[in-house]
Design a protein around this nucleic acid. Structure first.
Lengths: 234, 234
DNA sequence: TATCTGGTTTAGATGGAGCTAATAAATAAA
DNA sequence: TTTATTTATTAGCTCCATCTAAACCAGATA
């Protein structure tokens, strides 16, 4: 039986692991989970014994298929909860992450299914992240981040990170949410990128670190109609 | 900070404690929580240190006001969850207990409040148990159990225990749910009581142990109209 | 009053998850 | 190539919640 702490480690490794299956280091995991490196070493050894990760001493770990399955299941719980809390219980998109982070480890298969049924049409969570299907397949996800875009690019916001509530509240205020169209108006050499939601809106400047957490899709110069988004009211 | 195990102990003690504030014994708690007596001794000492229970060695424990507050808060979570899962997520009343027993320790104040708002009109959980108010006041509850009723008595079912899913499914099948009117048609000297939901219904016999978990209100011989109940569909 | 018996408590162990301090490995710098 | 720095790991501790086996009380029985 897996503990919820183990689930947290698997989820963290999944989220830190790039598409190219590189090893995730001890210190990365430690910082993601706010624990000290020795704790991570102990834990990853245990996960390796159970066949959930492959471990290379001093180099890091990589999820096995089994470990990945668990991680995606937890992520499904997380995103279903976020979507449900926003759609059905009036949560603001900035406050759901914490609640979902706890509950994701404690809902039964039954509740998972009931939530999914109640969210029939919903395929992404309130921040735009795709909800893994019941079979734990993940919809493909944009690989382009706002931080990589060039000056003048026309984009639509696909997904923002759900990690930082204050950042989310700020972006919401600034009108940058999944579905928003943006034009990049300036890339300053001080790790600052400026975007403009609507042609005559106030431009919004964002630190590159923030831009790295925003996934976008590039438009071919023809602004698209805004997609619906599941973001909650204030 | 209280652990969820501590919350479980406080809830168990609350539920075992009679109205007359008698001490609850180590072994009663152990059996309620499915742990061994020494575990209970250790835990109740810790709770006593924190001022949540009063402890008399070899005699048992009693909740302090502070301990009772925690217990009622947990019970509020439990019943809100049960009611919500049945009303909004299509749970059957027989299956909610387990889910609520886990989640009750993990929902935030915010979610507690959101659930309460979504259950505006609901004052009892699906089994008829009153939901403590936000200020942790408990509505008064019938003190009469079916097991204490006399032959021929006219009653309305107020509340059934949520502990045993199979028992609940059986009672549901037999039409004994909160709001049901009953007449006691036989009390056999073999710990068996027979009741009849409707005048020309099939009589239902129940072991006294089961009857002891069903709270009723006696009617003055005039059958009342069935009260609404929040029980879920099959 | 002395003894038995059942429930309670103490003693000591285990497994989970975390920590600090010290050591070891890998990498970067001199 | 040797040294310095960063990063990982080992060693050993703590707390939580549980257990079993042994000792202990207290009320019932003889």
């Amino acid at each position: 039986m897996l503990t919820n702490v183990m689930e947290d480690y698997l989820k963290a490794i999944y989220e830190l692991q790039d598409a190219d299956q590189e090893l995730v280091s001890t210190s990365e995991i430690a910082s993601q989970l706010s624990v000290k490196p020795p704790t991570v070493t102990t834990m990853t050894k245990k996960l390796a014994e159970r066949g959930l990760v492959e471990r290379e001493a001093y180099n890091g770990v990589r999820l096995t298929d089994e470990g990945e399955t668990v991680a995606i299941e937890v992520i499904r719980h997380h995103r279903l909860l976020e979507a449900y809390l926003v759609e059905q219980l009036g949560y603001d998109w900035a406050e759901v992450h914490e609640e979902a982070d706890v509950l994701e480890h404690h809902i039964s298969e039954t509740l998972e299914q009931r939530l999914a049924e109640a969210l029939d049409e919903t395929t992404v969570d309130p921040h735009g992240a795709p909800i893994p299907s019941e079979t734990l397949a993940l919809a493909s996800r944009s690989d382009t981040y706002l931080s990589e875009c060039e000056d003048g690019a026309h984009l639509v916001v696909v997904e923002v990170s759900d990690r930082d509530p204050e950042q989310l509240a700020y972006l919401d205020e600034a009108g940058i949410t999944p579905g928003t169209n943006l034009v990049v108006t300036e890339i300053a050499p001080i790790d600052l990128i400026t975007v403009q939601p609507q042609p005559d809106d106030t431009p919004v400047s964002l630190p590159m670190d923030v831009a790295r957490t925003i996934r976008v899709r590039e438009l071919n110069d023809e602004p698209e109609q805004a997609a619906t988004n599941a973001r909650g009211g204030a």
